[in-house]
Design a protein around this nucleic acid. Structure first.
Length: 651
RNA sequence: GCUAAUAUGGCUCAGCUGGUAGAGCAGCUGAUUCGUAAUCAGCAGGUCGCCGGUUCGAAUCCGGCUAUUAGCUCCA
């Protein structure tokens, strides 16, 4: 029979041949490196039988899918090793993830990372035995019987939840059998380099009401050298971790007595935030936003109107005693710190009758917000309990939503460009989708309309986005601008949201052309996101070597001896007068010592001033990242830095 | 909140099986006044995260709390 290949060639094989047979027919080298196959586009085992006319693609470790098959098999080897050592444990699931795999296991007695060596040793034995891996399918009843025999209660649950028509397949390697869709490597001996990396807890089926299982993370690579490289790269990434670097650089700190999720911005960090805030507020003003300054707290009455009291109360810092219904037991006034700015800005809109001529009404605020995140969720500057959001709300007609939405995105693009982060973000269209969770406002029609409306806008803009169900805000869908930290974990940097409910629930109205009262739409948006979080990503992106316009210290002036200290101070005064942020290192140290420190500080410009410079009115300039030194007049240096600062040049 | 781990001078780390702490860097002082990534010498600095327990005696063992980290859940 004849099998079609991806490159258009045709290969002849015997009837009943497998994918591996076909690979042998193509070339011995390919057969050796084969790990799986794609038959008519479907990923399958090498042992899968071919039919005449099938199209075939041999998958190797060079392919993403190939590496996933390899890692998935490694997860099975892990499961087998664990079953060998801890026969009473129950297996849950063991999928492939971005950089490796994990397996969730219910141990009867807890294990620790110290047990990894033993488990890895057992895995090594399984690999050395090079046991063939065989696939077989069972009807549902027999599949259940088999898993019940092995006392694998989680697998029983998984099988029960499979759809009626699902093919239930198993993979057997020696004495070990696991429920699995596959595909897998043909034998365990193909695995060359693996390592167990961490041990954590994870809820069964991701639901916090379920039992917490033990999750073992691991990774595997084609070659030992690649594994080593990966581990070294992971170590390197940790050095960029804002949570470490930000503290080392004196940008922020935390204090046990202040509390969790309450980072303290030190002078350098505060300076950066001031620079960013001024930039953002000025840019927003240019784009028609009116700045507001609203209270940090309000009575529960406000949050009852906004829906926060019903949907968000457990995440708020409430001042005063309340019962389970959110009411004061003795009728006292209940205040709460604000988790959002929206309802406050709506009050401004409502102050006075609005005409269609007043729309769009754009309010922005650098808003400090408070959210009572669960204790285990805090992380450096990325996830905190008090933060400052570049918040804003546009109240507009339905017809204006599209244009306003695009303008918001344009502003965020402009800011991301200035930060040099435009290429580091991805977009997520966060919908309610099919979710019927009661965390969302109950209005199917409005949800469907608004989600459809946002999709039209996004497609029209032509941005590349992924759709995500059950990720919406409680009042409407969002476009989330996502970014990954050094550990590969994704977070939302910026968000733009369409709200169909606020107009009516807050009774915000406008008088339309025809004299009728109408409810407006609201676009919730952030321009730079939350300043603390954005700062965290800036630290990680630049490893502390910020673009000049963001640097708390842009220039360090180093006198060679005390003789030129006065001249250094004079230069500093001139720079400061022109708005350049500079420092003089007046310590009695050798120039090499001062240079070293200034370089470790990642200051964009180092100016060395000695007798020569003092005499000529010049400075000797070294720019960060280069070894070049150039002597220029003070005036020339100032113009250069001022220009670079204004243009927000990234280098 | 849940699972696991961690907590020693500003930082990085020693401190074996319980006998109340040490180093390097940073800091300070003195000498040195030096031309592009660490000058030399000296000094000072810690009730070992907090509270309690066991013990003749706790940084070390046990418990509680606080904070931090990796995840889960959640989320800007």
């Amino acid at each position: 029979m004849e099998i079609k290949l991806k490159n258009g060639n045709v290969v002849s094989v015997d009837d009943g041949a497998s994918c591996l047979d076909a690979a042998h027919a193509i070339s011995e080298g390919l057969a050796r490196s084969a790990v799986a196959a794609k038959v008519n586009g479907n990923l399958c085992d090498l042992s899968a039988k071919l039919n005449d006319g099938d199209s075939l693609e041999i998958v190797t470790l060079k392919d993403k899918e190939g590496l996933e098959v390899y890692r998935h098999t490694c997860a099975h080897v892990l499961a087998q090793a664990i079953k060998n050592i801890y026969p009473t444990c129950n297996l849950a699931i063991g999928p492939v993830i971005d950089n490796g795999f994990y397996y969730d296991i219910d141990f009867k007695t807890p294990i620790t990372q110290d047990d990894f060596a033993k488990i890895e040793g057992e895995m090594q034995k399984i690999i050395a035995a090079n046991t063939p891996i065989e696939r077989y399918e069972l009807p549902r009843a027999e599949a259940l019987k088999l898993m019940k025999k092995y006392k694998e209660k989680y697998k029983v649950e998984l099988i029960n939840d499979l759809p009626e028509d699902a093919v239930i397949s198993f993979y057997k390697q020696g004495t070990f059998t696991d429920l699995c869709r596959g595909p897998h490597l043909p034998s365990t001996g193909k695995i060359k380099a693996f390592k167990l990396t961490s041990l954590t807890g994870a809820y069964w089926r991701g639901n916090e009401k379920n039992k917490m299982l033990t999750r073992i993370y691991g990774t595997a690579f084609e070659k030992k050298s690649q594994l080593e490289e990966y581990l070294v790269a992971a170590e390197e990434a940790k050095k960029r971790d804002h949570n470490k670097l930000g503290r080392d650089l004196g940008i922020f700190m935390t204090s046990d007595v202040v509390g969790q999720g309450l980072p303290i911005l030190m002078p350098k960090g505060a300076k950066i935030l001031q620079i960013l805030t001024r930039f953002v507020e000025d840019e927003e003003a240019k784009r028609g936003f009116m700045i507001t300054k609203t209270p940090y707290m309000a009575k529960s009455d406000l949050y009852k109107i906004s829906g926060h009291w019903a949907h968000y109360r457990d995440k708020m810092f409430v001042l005063g005693e309340i019962d389970e219904h959110g009411e004061s037991p003795d009728g006292e006034e209940i205040m709460a710190l604000r988790p959002m700015t929206c309802p406050f800005q709506y009050q401004i809109y409502k102050n006075g009758l609005k005409s269609y001529r007043d729309l769009p009404c754009r309010y922005s605020e650098t808003a400090t917000l408070y959210r009572k995140e669960a204790s285990g969720e805090m992380h450096g500057l990325i996830r905190v309990r008090q933060f400052t959001l570049s918040d804003g709300h546009i109240i507009c007609t339905k017809e204006q939503v599209e244009d306003e939405f695009k303008r918001c995105l344009d502003l965020s693009y402009y800011i991301l460009d200035a930060l040099g982060m435009r290429n580091d973000v991805t977009f997520r269209f966060s919908k309610r989708g099919a979710s019927k969770s009661d965390k969302y406002i109950d209005n199917d029609e409005a949800w469907n309309n608004t989600e459809a409306m946002m999709k039209v806008i996004l497609d029209d803009i032509g941005i590349d986005y992924v759709e995500a169900d059950d990720e919406a805000a409680f009042y409407g869908p969002k476009l989330d601008v996502q970014i990954k930290n050094v550990h590969g974990k994704e977070d939302t940097l910026i968000t733009i949201q369409i709200d169909f409910a606020a107009g009516e629930s807050f009774e915000m109205q406008y008088i339309d052309v025809d004299g009728t009262k109408q409810y407006p739409y609201v676009v919730h948006r952030s321009s730079i996101g939350c300043y603390e979080r954005t700062l965290a990503f800036l630290i990680e992106k630049y490893a502390g070597a910020f673009p000049l316009w963001i640097c708390p210290t842009q220039v360090k002036i180093l006198p060679i001896t005390d003789r030129t200290l006065d001249y250094a101070k004079q230069v500093a005064e001139q720079l400061t007068f022109k708005g350049i942020r500079c420092e003089v290192d007046s310590r009695n140290e050798k120039i090499g010592y001062k240079i070293r420190e200034a370089k470790l500080d990642k200051v964009p410009y180092i100016l060395v001033v000695g007798d020569k410079e003092a005499e000529d009115g010049t400075v000797n300039v070294n720019r960060r990242g280069t070894e070049e030194k150039q002597t220029v007049s003070v005036g020339e240096f100032i113009s250069k830095v001022v220009e670079e600062d204004e243009k927000k040049i990234i280098f």
